[in-house]
Design a protein around this nucleic acid. Structure first.
Length: 783
DNA sequence: AGAATGGACTTTTTT
DNA sequence: AGTCCATTCT
């Protein structure tokens, strides 16, 4: 297997300087320089739409064509599988298919999973290790929390997982973390961290974080392994460098240490993954680690119109944490950015639908030129409904991808068990699905036995006779054991898809889905069938070794939303702002620009969180090439009822004249004084927020019929929203600072209902967000 | 054991 | 509105 790794490609790269020249054509001076700077560390700081990925791609092609590197000496790390695939395709076009063969190009996670497959034994894993997604990790954590009697209501498993994940990404060991833990939550996480790691190891499983930190562990333990990879990869490239975390930073540094030919591309203003440990500081550290690094700035934007860029600039200017960059473009002025106000999320969706139709009919835009962006996945629903009603074809990126569906995950869990029976998370998932009489109590006894004996759950099942279960339960476990063992025995000898089929049949999953006879279950049945044929396809494509079941399963864990989508169809694209990173569209809609949604309420308290939201807005705006629409709804359906909303502060921050117009063509002026940004304080001083803004705003912004503004204002006191916001009746309005006997001081986020039914959503400094009945809560106004 | 019922709680974003 | 959990019923 190792030999395969270092094999030379069969055909020599056809390298000539002439071809290298061809490759750099069509780039501007800075880009050409970036491409040709082939020795030593290079840092490319580049704005949106500056062709940064293209520059990186050309650089790699240039290295090959100019004969500076063989393809197998090239490592390129990207952020998504899709980016890697596209990069590879473009390079193949530039230098030829065979000349490009053998490059290592992929996401950090996929790349190091692949590396770990060949080196797993050196750190005490086997090549068939399972890859745990968030779900699996939380399943393991839940068990541990039950064991340690940690209340999962008080300390959510999700929080525990993210704390542990943070520690792992920061390369903090369990012992260290326990020492550093300050808050109660951290203390609980510290308690879980060690056992969690142990559980994974016992299950021969790695979570997403492990795929990055185990290689580091490996390289530390075995310097000669590191040496081998260092020698092999003489050119290291990293795209979207601003989104790398500490572990990724360390890995890259280790690998590039020998040749020091490392080229990274990034834009600090587009960093939107700090929540998952990404560290913008890595860009700064790069210059510290490599003082001789060549820094190249790409500031010309080739993507957007002047107006769109002006808007983007006015947004990002508000952030304190940023490197100065002057974006400019030769593109035309372009149309106004349009701000749309809607009454509800349904109305918003309908307006988007109508606008798409209009642009398509009137200006000849095709469906694939549109993208509708939103902050949270759940927002896609109303938009999907509207598009469907208008018969506009669309595709949703993300949401619940195929491999996240329950029935698929169930079958996959069985398959993972067959490959790696020690996979505890998978056992817990399916040990009693379909129901086979292994109830909670039996499972607990098995787990307890495993713990006593210090073995994995599977090993406990193998020794079920010693556990001392009731005869009926024991027989059920024995049947389960036989089922898995029987298939495991054939795992390597039979084709992957055959194993999958017989598992789906023998477990009774197919049977159960078939029997139910509902539309829903029929869909699921089809999905399972589709999975099986997918596995067959995979095996056929890859051939024996690489097409094994275990390779398939590891691949699947690393697949994401954007992958596997056919893009050639002419459809409108719906996705989250996060998923839109790196893409561009002629026409872009950014929907749901409302306080609490974008910026998300939990992210609007701390300055650094708010700035990340703002960068996200910046990313969204800069996806647009020609036309940009921003929209918000004045009420939105959330938690089962229609709640009033307030337009996003991001809109009111916009301070460039002549860039935005309302739908009716009116001028738009933001009110920048609405949310005061304490320049010197670390936190947004929410105390300074104008509590009466909401009322005034609602009255003045007379809804869709802008013309009758004055009329609307006159009749306002008795109009639509009086019930909700009538101060005399309620006394509490959103934005107000209040005090509660128990919860202390907090800010009112929203009011709903009226009279005795009135409820307030309040964000308390101490205890977080709560919804309270005004009748009982006895809120006092502060200040 | 397992289904059924009722209640609390929920929403970030993702490799 | 949906999901997850606990309790109760069969």
């Amino acid at each position: 297997m190792q030999r395969q790794l270092f094999q030379l490609p069969k055909e020599e790269a056809r390298s000539s300087n002439e071809e290298a020249e061809l490759i750099v054509q069509g780039l501007n001076r800075e880009q050409q320089e970036a491409v040709r700077t082939s020795e030593g560390p290079v840092l490319i700081i580049a704005g949106p739409g500056s062709g940064k990925t293209r520059t990186l791609t050309h650089r790699i092609a240039y290295l090959i064509a100019a004969g500076k590197a063989r393809p197998y000496q090239i490592l390129a790390l990207t952020f998504t599988n899709k980016a890697a695939r596209e990069m590879k395709e473009r390079i193949q076009k530039l230098v030829g298919d065979t000349a490009a063969k053998g490059m290592w190009m992929g996401t950090f996670h996929a790349t190091f999973a692949r590396l770990l497959r060949t080196e797993a034994d050196k750190i005490g894993f086997t090549a068939d290790f399972s890859i745990y997604d968030t779900d699996d990790s939380e399943r393991i954590l839940k068990q541990l929390m039950e064991r340690f009697r940690i209340d999962s209501k008080q300390f959510s498993t999700r929080l525990m997982r993210s704390l542990i994940s943070g520690a792992k990404n920061g390369l903090v060991s369990p012992a260290e973390y326990a020492r550093l833990a300050v808050t109660e939550q951290q203390a609980k996480a510290a308690q879980l961290y060690g056992p969690y790691e142990e559980a994974l190891r016992r299950a021969n499983a790695m979570d997403f974080d492990d795929l990055l930190i185990r290689p580091i562990e490996l390289f530390q333990k075995s310097p000669e392994t590191l040496e081998r990879y260092q020698t092999r990869w003489s050119y290291v490239h990293i795209d979207e460098y601003q989104d790398t975390n500490h572990a990724q930073y360390v890995l890259a540094k280790m690998l590039a240490d020998k040749h020091r030919n490392i080229c990274v591309v990034g834009d600090d203003a587009q960093s939107i993954y700090a929540f998952r440990g990404a560290d913008i500081g890595n860009i700064l550290s790069f210059q510290r680690d490599y003082p001789d690094a060549k820094v190249i700035r790409l500031e010309q934007n080739y993507r957007s119109t002047k107006r769109i860029l002006q808007l983007a600039d006015s947004i990002i200017k508000r952030n304190q944490d940023r490197l100065d960059k002057e974006l400019w473009t030769d593109n035309r002025e372009g149309d106004y950015v349009v701000l749309m106000e809607a009454l509800s999320e349904k109305d918003e969706a309908q307006k988007i639908e109508r606008t798409i139709r209009d642009l398509q009919v009137r200006l000849g835009h095709t469906y694939r030129e549109f993208a509708v962006l939103y902050r949270t996945n759940s927002q896609s629903r109303s938009i999907e409904d509207a598009l469907r009603r208008g018969s506009i074809p669309y595709r949703v990126v993300g949401g619940t991808p195929f491999f996240q569906r329950k029935e698929i995950k169930d079958v996959l869990a069985y398959l993972r068990l067959v490959v790696n029976p020690n996979d505890t998370a998978s056992i817990t998932r399916v040990i009693n699905y379909p129901a086979r009489g292994i109830g909670e109590k039996t499972q607990e006894e098995l787990a307890a036995f495993a713990r006593r004996e210090g073995v994995s759950l599977w090993q406990a099942i193998e020794r079920v006779e010693e556990v001392g279960l009731a005869p009926r339960a024991q027989a059920a476990v024995e049947r389960f054991r036989f089922l898995i063992a029987q298939h495991a025995a054939q795992a390597t000898s039979r084709p992957a898809d055959e194993i999958a089929r017989s598992i789906a049949e023998d477990t009774g999953i197919l049977h159960e889905l078939h029997q139910e006879k509902t539309e829903e279950s029929l869909m699921r049945w089809q999905n399972v069938q589709e999975l099986i044929s997918g596995i067959a396809e995979f095996a056929a494509e890859r051939g024996d070794e690489a097409g094994s079941l275990s390779a398939f399963l590891q691949d699947v864990s690393l697949m994401t939303d954007a992958d596997g989508e056919e893009e050639d169809t002419n459809r409108v694209t719906l996705m989250t702002l996060h998923a839109s990173k790196g893409l561009e569209f002629p026409v872009v809609f950014i929907s749901g620009l409302e306080e609490g949604l974008f910026p998300l309420s939990m992210a609007s308290q701390e300055r650094k969180d708010l700035e990340e939201e703002r960068r996200l807005f910046y990313v969204g705006v800069t996806r647009a090439q020609e036309r940009l629409f921003l929209s918000y709804a004045r009420s939105r359906f959330r938690y089962g009822n229609q709640e009033p909303t307030v337009r996003s502060r991001f809109l009111d921050e916009i301070d460039v004249p002549d860039v935005i117009r309302t739908e009716a063509g009116g001028m738009f002026n933001g009110r920048s004084d609405r949310f005061s940004l304490g320049a010197s304080t670390r936190e947004i001083s929410y105390n300074e927020m104008d509590p009466y803004y909401y009322r005034r705003n609602l009255r003045q912004n007379g809804g869709p019929q802008q013309k009758s503004r004055t009329a609307a204002r006159k009749s306002a006191p008795s109009s639509e929203r009086r019930v909700v916001y009538d101060e005399d009746q309620v006394g509490i309005v959103p934005g107000m600072i209040v005090e509660h006997d128990l919860f202390g001081e907090g800010k009112v986020l929203a009011i709903e209902g009226a009279g005795d039914q009135a409820k307030a959503t309040v964000f308390f400094k101490e205890v977080g967000q709560k919804k309270l009945m005004l009748k009982f809560a006895k809120l006092r106004r502060v200040g």
